[in-house]
Design a protein around this nucleic acid. Structure first.
Lengths: 363, 363
DNA sequence: CGAGCTTATGCAAACGTGTGAGAAAATCCC
DNA sequence: GGGATTTTCTCACACGTTTGCATAAGCTCG
């Protein structure tokens, strides 16, 4: 029965009762503005907008209509202050431009969006100073949780993060601590499958071109390679294992050396796709046909893998899914549940054109 | 029973003696806690931590020491509420997994970090519903500014965004409005340079493989191509202009058709690197040598461009720099300054191995 | 030595929202 | 019809910070 038009008529500066300084900046409409228009107290408005059962249907609907008409947006800032929950998480990345990272973040963001959370993105180029700033920033913003997506977290970093009493989930980290939870890729299994694939094709001399020695993921992928050989009762040739640096340039020289062996490998399993890229280029330069003369398998399934010549057989990592899982874990942790330390995500072998049976005429 | 909790919260100091259960939420230390320890009022603490000249050096230092020792982190939430500035910006992307986008975001984030801003990242997969949710979220979070990095923004989107009274900067958008500011790549200039490069190498029949007809960036890149031809007083052959879809599969068929022409081109300029990838593959399949038989030039300078066979000559877009510039503009706008509508960023031709002089023995 | 000034500090009102307690109004029961 | 109960709404405080204004101390100066 209230005439909206009437109340609308004098809504402009009806704050005569309160001598508020008419600031030049026109603030967004608040529940008080709506309360004035609806002729109720602002706490009634608050409850009505939350669909509290304490408010009658009639007034609730009236208030909601007024709110919609006046373009009201509740302030998450004010709400966060009183509820002590910001519905916000922090995501730390080494570099968002890294395709691995950005796909993980894609998953995180999607999950956040579905659950009413917003994500703060912060870049710490593995730089301790930046890391410190990021942590400080997240602490001040009172994020409800944190996801760290970086290939390597500094030693001082985790204690720094855990200083704030907020759940943390790591993605593919190298230093799993006791107090944090993590989502990890199953390096060993993926590597074993890739090697088995080559074994089943008939290969007996399979090279492994690794990352720098000592890196955790390299160590794990090498174990998978060893396990596969052992599982098939194949001999292990130490001269077929070489450590690169995960980049393609280094892999070129390594490939040349492998081909110069008295008995060169018939297949090369690479630590990652970038390494495989170098191997492919080197093989092309030497005039070898792939996979007729020699097979190549990578790891990562980068976007580029389906565009190499020939398209690269490689181990796919479900990066976006890892992001979703990490955020799922974080949601559980933030709701107070406890969960097992680590989630591991299986890989999936993607067979393309760079792997095939070895030539028959080998000795 | 709740009043008990309240009194507990009130005299925090004495709560050491009170047997408070560990399960209770222990809030982060606030300025009131520090004020109590320092035996001053909390407003003195606030000023001391801001290095206000109103506070004597002695007490300021004492307060700062206590704050440091007790691991105090000012609440950006509370500060945002009173100052009406959250020191927060929102970044809307179509997909963070897109390498173009992620590098732009990298630049934005770096600039933000340097200026004490935090970035909210939100993904709107060009989905109107998601877009609406993103805008709503940013509005509720009271972001101070917005950057939109998406190849195409929906028609309804910009008015939606501008509804909130906050500066907006678009990056490489297709629909520049009147009220927004933008950072754009100089498509025409980049395309002209690329074409000129081929002309200077001696090419006279240069094909252009475009994106779908009507897309703004395709139109601009095509104009650059035409301008270069006209500038060199070269004839334009309409049969050498074909529209693809920006993907490599389509480009394969297009290339085959171009080679079947009575007088095939000696060089192919591609709308983007993905197209060039398809062209390269098709040329390989047809046994053409690159660049001896035919030259190929791309646009974008994706990461992949330096790994093709041969490495691709292409037009580089300074993506990170565009992010920095966009954020720089936004900072200016947020500080109340006005600035000219659009910033354009020059491209840079990267000459690799896929372009060379045409064969002498052409008619 | 008090008026006036500077310096250092405290008081209290915001900012926009949530929420327990209590008041007012409506409804029900006997 | 009056008390009990339920429904509906208002009051008042809290969240943690900034900041204008008041105030108390210490100083200078006439």
């Amino acid at each position: 029965m209230f005439s909206v038009l009437q109340t609308c008529a004098n809504d402009n500066m009806a704050s005569d009762s309160v001598n508020r300084p008419t600031s030049s900046v026109n603030r967004p409409t608040s529940i008080k503005d709506i309360a004035r228009k609806a002729n109720v107290s602002f706490s009634t408005v608050s409850r009505a907008l939350q669909n509290s059962p304490l408010i009658s249907r009639r007034t609730a609907e009236k208030i909601q209509r007024i709110a919609r008409d006046s373009g009201y947006r509740a302030s998450a800032v004010a709400r966060g202050l009183v509820t002590q929950k910001t519905k916000t998480i922090g995501v730390v990345v080494t570099s968002i431009a890294d395709p691995f990272v950005s796909e993980v973040v894609d998953g995180i963001e999607e999950c956040c969006n579905d659950h009413g959370y917003s994500v703060f993105l912060a870049n710490s180029n593995a730089d301790p100073d930046r890391e410190r700033k990021v942590v400080q920033s997240f602490a001040e913003r009172r994020v409800d949780g944190i996801v760290v997506t970086s290939s390597r977290v500094g030693a001082l970093y985790i204690p720094l993060l855990s200083e704030m009493r907020v759940p943390i989930v790591l993605v593919n980290n190298q230093h799993p601590g006791e107090f944090v939870h993590s989502v990890m890729i199953e390096n060993v299994q993926g590597s074993r499958e890739a090697t088995n694939h080559l074994i089943q094709l008939g290969h007996r001399r399979i090279a492994y071109v690794g990352d720098r020695f000592g890196h955790q993921s390299d160590t794990e992928r090498f174990s998978g390679y060893r396990e596969a050989l052992d599982g098939a009762a194949l001999p292990f040739f130490s001269e077929l294992v070489v450590h690169g640096d995960g980049k393609s340039e280094k892999a070129i020289a390594i490939t040349e050396a492998l081909l110069r062996l008295e008995e060169p490998p018939t297949a090369i399993f690479c630590y990652n796709d970038m390494t495989a890229l170098g191997v492919l280029r080197s093989l092309h330069a030497q005039g070898r046909r792939i996979p007729t003369d020699i097979s190549v398998v990578g790891f990562d399934d980068l976007f580029i893998a389906s565009y190499t010549d020939p398209p690269l057989t490689t181990v796919h990592q479900p990066r976006k899914r890892m992001g979703l899982l990490a955020m799922g874990s974080l949601l559980q942790l933030m709701s107070g549940q406890n969960l097992s330390q680590a989630i591991t995500v299986p890989t999936e072998l993607v067979v393309r054109k760079s792997s095939g049976p070895p030539q028959k005429n080998r000795k």
